[in-house]
Amino acid sequence: MKRRDFIRKSAAAAAFTGAAISLPFGSKLFSSPSHPYNPSNPSPFDLVAIKGGEVEAMFDQAIAAMGGMQAFVKKGQKVVVKPNIGWDVSPERAGNTNPALVKRIVRHCLDAGAKEVYVFDNTCDKWDRCYATSGIEQAVKDAGGKLAPGNTENYYQEVQIPNGKKLKSTKVHELILDSDVFINVPVLKSHGSARLTISMKNLMGVVWDRGWWHRNDLNQCIADYATYMKKPTLNIIDAYRVMMKNGPRGVSEADVSLMKSLIISPDMVAADAAATKMFGISPDDVPYIGIADSMGIGSMALDKLNVHRIIL
C-alpha cells in the first residue's frame, strides 16, 4: 500500500468509525429523554401494606387492592423494574430484593400487556455475579422478562434535576429514560450510610456516579434525585426478609429477620416512612425522608393518607 493510500484509507476508516459512534449517540442526545410524567394515582389507596403471608400471595393481594397491575401498566408499554441487586449474596442474606417478588412483578406486568419488561441495577459487587447469586437472573428469565446490564458509564445519560438543591444533574440509565413505566422494587435494609435503604435510596442504582452523591451531602442528594420527573410509577418494598444490621451488604444470615411484609405505594416518601416504622424506628431517624417531605416530593404524614392494611 502506498503511503498516501494508507493515510487516505485510515482517515476514511476513522471518519466512518467516528460517524458510527457519534450518530446513534447523537440521535439519543437530541431526542428528549422522556415525556414528562407524573402518575395520577389510579388506585383507591395511597398506600397498601400487607403482612403475614408468602411473597407471591402478599404481592397478589396487595396489587389487587391497588387496582391491579393493569391500572399502572397499559398494553404495549415498555416497563423497567428496578430491584436492589447490589450484592453478590444469596437470597437468604436479604442483601438483594427477593427474587420471587421480582419474578411475580415481571409476570404481572406481562400479563397486563407490557410489551417488554426490563430488569437492571447498577450493582456494587461485580454485576453479573450479583445478578446470578441473587437469584434474580433466573427469576426474570423464568418470568419472561429481560435482564439488562448497567455496568458501564455509556448506559447512562446526563439529565438535569431542576429542583435539586445539591444535585443539579446526574447520569441516569437509558432504560429509565426510555421506559413508559418504572417500577421501583427496593428491599428494606439497614444501611451504614443512610440508616435505612428503601425506595428513594434504591434509586441510587439507576444513576452512574454515586461517589459524587457521597461527597456532596448524601442525604440531600437522595432527596434531590427523588424530585427528578421520571419518578417510579410504583414502589414495591420487599420486607419479607429484612436485614436488621450490618447493612447494606450484611455479614451473615444472622443479620436477617423474617418480617414477611410488603408495602406498595406510588408515593416514595409515604412508602419509606411506613417501611421505617415497620423496621421499628421513626422516619425522623432517616434524614432523607424528612428532607424529601419538606421538599414536597411526597408525604410522610401517614395518618393523613388513605392507607389500606392487610393482615393475612
Binding site: 456494587c124 444501611h191 450510610s193 443512610a194 448524601l218 440531600q220 451488604r249 455479614v251
Partner: peptide, 20 residues
Amino acid sequence: THNTACGACSEHCPTKAVQM
C-alpha cells in the same frame, strides 16, 4: 471535612471491619 453523611466504605465492606 463537610459534616455530611457518607459511609460508602462501610457499605461495601463484606465483613463489616469498617463500621459507622
